[in-house]
């Protein structure tokens, strides 16, 4: 019913809606009836203690995990049976909690892999320097460079990820996610391993890339980043949404204080 609701109100067109998501591994329930309503133009925070199920929820949204029950739709498109690659084709991209850049590619080339789906060049131009393939590569390179530049790390373009500080690698992952102009951007702990300065730069960069057609979801333990960046927050505990609403409302929620903020975060 959430979906019908979403279609009725114009501002929710193109929303990413999950309803009643249940996920279990070997009899252990990881997600228990999670509902999400993520709208274009809003940054949503997803917080909760370690093991609450945040990454698992991301994995359900992107198709790496298959929920035992529940439905996921992006706009009018039901995602449930689509593979991760198909969902990527619909404009859903993500970054990973554990760094997932190829060490064999430069940072710039890693970002270029974010354009794989929108590139058309065939196998001929993979082996032979053909004009069309060249032009396409040039274009991809330019767009990847622009994405790096937007995040302020263009200087690291030609270095390999293992040579870069974690902050730059994180931003590189975000650049790779952004370069194709996604509809949905899911960030799993983008500030993990970053120092205070890098986290501040990241927060600013994310603000800058936000636009009215983008759905951005951030999983993060860094409360400053969440509070500064997010328009709405979902709090997850033991696989259940225990609160959702504006940062202020969530911060004041007694249950959240007890379960999450009171438990002390790292």
């Amino acid at each position: 019913m959430a979906i019908i609701h979403a279609e009725a109100a114009p501002e929710t067109r193109g929303a990413l809606v999950a309803s009643g998501i249940n996920l279990s591994f070997g009899g252990i329930d990881v997600l228990k009836g999670v509902d999400l309503d993520l709208r274009p133009g809003l940054v949503t925070g997803l917080i909760g203690p370690n093991g609450a199920g945040k990454t698992s929820l991301f994995n359900c949204l992107t198709g790496l995990y298959h929920p035992n029950r529940g439905r996921i739709a992006l706009g009018d498109t039901a995602l449930d049976v689509l593979s991760p690659a198909r969902r990527a084709g619909l404009g859903m991209v993500r970054s990973f909690q554990h760094m997932a850049l190829s060490p064999d590619l430069t940072l710039l080339e890693n970002v270029m892999t974010g354009l794989t789906l929108s590139r058309r060049s065939g196998w001929g131009s993979a082996f032979l320097p053909m004009p069309r393939g060249r032009a396409e590569t040039q274009d991809a390179r330019r767009r990847a460079m622009a994405a790096l530049d937007e995040l302020g790390i263009a200087g690291a373009a030609d270095l390999a990820p293992p040579e870069l500080p974690p902050g730059t690698q994180r931003l590189g992952e975000i650049a790779r996610a952004l370069v194709g102009g996604p509809k949905v951007l899911l960030l799993d702990e983008p500030a993990a391993g970053l120092n205070a300065v890098e986290t501040r730069d990241l927060t600013r960069a994310l603000r800058r890339v936000m636009h009215p057609a983008l759905i951005m979801v951030v999983v993060e333990h860094d409360m400053d980043l969440i509070m500064q960046l997010c328009d709405q927050i979902y709090v997850l505990n033991f696989g259940k949404v225990i609160a959702c609403g504006s940062p202020e409302a969530v911060q004041a929620d007694p249950e959240v204080l007890r379960v999450y903020l009171g438990a002390g975060d790292e």
Binding site: A85, A88, V93, R94, L101, G114, T116, L117, R176
Partner: peptide, 9 residues
């Protein structure tokens, strides 16, 4: 998995 998330199966 990262590759899959960018359409590379």
């Amino acid at each position: 998995r990262a590759a899959e998330a960018f359409g590379i199966t």
